[in-house]
């Protein structure tokens, strides 16, 4: 968590510094304050200061934590919690990867209804572990329902 906070706060710091620079470069007709860059520049500078504060607080917090005796630290995180965390990360990685695949690859490749059927079937099968019959029935009926509702009830086009 410490490393993650450090990475994100440093990314924020550099991102907001860049946005501040970008806002300053925007042209202004009379004075900087009524120009398009004024409000983004103020926000980016405030965000830069807040990110710096975030980074410093994270480091100081970690330094305080490191003073806690080793025995207390190891007792606080047991092996079952670690395994649970690993399982959670695995599930999260799978669903994110499948969703990106569904939106960026499957939808343009095999059209929305078929892509949805495939996506739902795989995800429901993976995350419910109820064989293939229930996932197939649920995914097929859900896809048909979405297709019919959008095309014939709401008259809205399907994503491509």
């Amino acid at each position: 968590m410490f490393a993650f906070e450090i990475v994100v706060s440093v990314l924020c710091l550099s991102g907001f510094a860049f946005l501040f620079y970008d806002a300053l470069r925007m042209p202004f007709p009379q004075q900087f304050w009524d120009g398009p860059g004024s409000f983004p520049a103020i926000l980016a500078s405030l965000l830069f200061v807040l990110s710096l504060y975030w980074l410093i607080t994270t480091i100081v917090g970690q330094m305080r934590k490191s003073k806690v005796p080793e025995a207390e630290k190891s007792a606080s995180v047991d092996t079952s919690t670690k395994a649970l965390k690993r399982e959670e990360i695995k599930r999260l990685a799978i669903i994110i990867a499948l969703t990106i695949l569904y939106i960026m690859v499957l939808m343009p490749l095999i059209t929305f209804p078929i892509a949805t059927l495939v996506y739902l079937f795989i995800t429901i099968m993976l995350f419910t572990r109820k064989g293939w019959v229930i996932p197939l029935v649920v995914s097929a009926s859900a896809t048909l329902f979405v297709y019919l509702v959008f095309n014939y009830v709401l008259y809205l086009p399907m994503p491509r």
């Binding site: 669903i95 969703t99 990106i100 569904y102 939106i103 960026m104 939808m107 343009p108 949805t116 996506y119 739902l120 995800t123 429901i124 995350f127 419910t128 572990r129 649920v138 859900a142 979405v146 959008f150 809205l156 086009p157 399907m158 994503p159 491509r160």
Partner: peptide
């Protein structure tokens, strides 16, 4: 939840697309 949530993801995709019929909005949503 294993059944409901994948359906929610599909609704998120459809919902973000229909607002202005742009794939860009789906990417923004993601």
């Amino acid at each position: 939840m294993g059944i409901i949530m994948p359906l929610v993801v599909v609704l998120c995709v459809v919902g973000s697309y229909t607002i202005s019929l742009r794939k860009f909005d789906v990417v923004v949503m993601l």
